[in-house]
């Protein structure tokens, strides 16, 4: 029995070996190389000449006030975009899950932001947000909500909100699709039974539907969080991390250090911090997942 199991294990290892080797080459090596760079003073101008500097890049980073601001901004951006995308995605999924005329058209249309290239989205929103000629200011002043040009991308108090708005608009269709698939796996009979027992719409949602798709939401939150830490193009094209670092997330800081200031070592140190943050999020996810699995088992 044991030797049979060993043979199966060996076969399994052979089966997954190509994938493991591929991942080691295209993921593992760059990660290790990045970690190594973070302990050196490598410059973009001469990446093959570097000196080991120990923890100097990390101590320099954490001694900077601006890096602490960057960490806070990253947290705000990641939290805001994940909550926004999940809530809006859930609302869209609930709508799309219902039966109504034109449902197929709505499902197709809701995907448009997800399918639009990020560069195009950023350029369009730069125009929408333009203080003097943007359609947003025009619309808001037409109905008397604002007086004069609001600097959506250049006011430090508004820039993060504006960037979050664009991000959520861009990514919520992904949440909607994932959650729609999950909603369709919730047995309709459970919801019907709840309604027969007198439960109303919101109660059905919170007591039956949401618990039914809880695991999907958790996975979705995990992915969206990690992607938020890595999102670059939208923020860079909209604000380049400004004004006054108001939208300066980790990855924007990494790009500036690496490709504007040519300090690859420092950029790699920021990358390592981001990598550790991703691992932390994953650990939290597994902890929550395990706990809920245990609770489900007890129940």
């Amino acid at each position: 029995m044991q030797s049979n199991e060993r043979a199966i294990n060996r076969e399994a290892w052979f089966g997954i070996a190509p994938a493991v080797l591929l991942l080691a080459a295209v993921q593992g090596y760059p990660i290790l190389r990045g970690i190594y760079l973070s302990f050196t003073n490598t410059s973009l101008l001469s990446p093959n000449r570097s000196t080991f500097v120990g923890l100097r890049n990390f101590t320099a980073l954490f001694n900077l006030d601006s890096f602490q601001i960057t960490m806070v901004k990253t947290l705000v951006y990641a939290t805001g975009s994940v909550i926004g995308a999940v809530v809006l995605g859930l609302a869209a999924a609930l709508v799309m899950n219902g039966a109504f005329p034109g449902r197929r058209l709505v499902r197709a249309m809701i995907l448009v932001p997800w399918a639009t290239p990020q560069v195009a989205v950023a350029l369009v929103f730069v125009w929408i947000f333009n203080a003097d000629y943007g359609v947003l200011n025009y619309a808001l002043s037409s109905i008397g909500l604002i007086d004069g040009g609001v600097l959506w991308l250049n006011d430090p108090d508004l820039a993060m909100g504006s960037v979050l708005l664009v991000t959520i608009w861009k990514i919520f269709p992904f949440s909607a699709l994932v959650l729609l698939a999950a909603l369709q796996s919730v047995p309709a009979s459970l919801e019907e039974a709840a309604r027969i027992d007198g439960a109303r719409g919101f109660a059905v949602l919170t007591e039956i539907t949401l618990p039914g798709i809880r695991r999907t939401i958790l996975v979705l939150v995990l992915f969206l969080s990690i992607w938020s830490l890595r999102r670059f193009e939208l923020i860079w094209l909209l604000t380049q991390g400004g004004p006054v670092r108001a939208t300066n997330t980790l990855v924007v800081d990494l790009y500036r250090q690496g490709f504007v200031n040519a300090h690859l070592g420092r950029a790699a140190a920021i990358g390592v911090v981001g990598f550790l943050a991703s691992i932390l999020i994953t650990i939290v996810y597994y902890y929550v997942e395990q706990r809920s699995a245990r609770r489900a088992g007890e129940a």
């Binding site: 600097l151 250049n154 006011d155 430090p156 400004g242 004004p243 006054v244 670092r245 500036r256 504007v260 200031n261």
Partner: peptide
């Protein structure tokens, strides 16, 4: 980069 951030502080903050 330093100068640009200082100018942003003056203009926008």
């Amino acid at each position: 980069t330093v100068m640009s951030e200082a100018l942003e502080q003056v203009l926008f903050n």
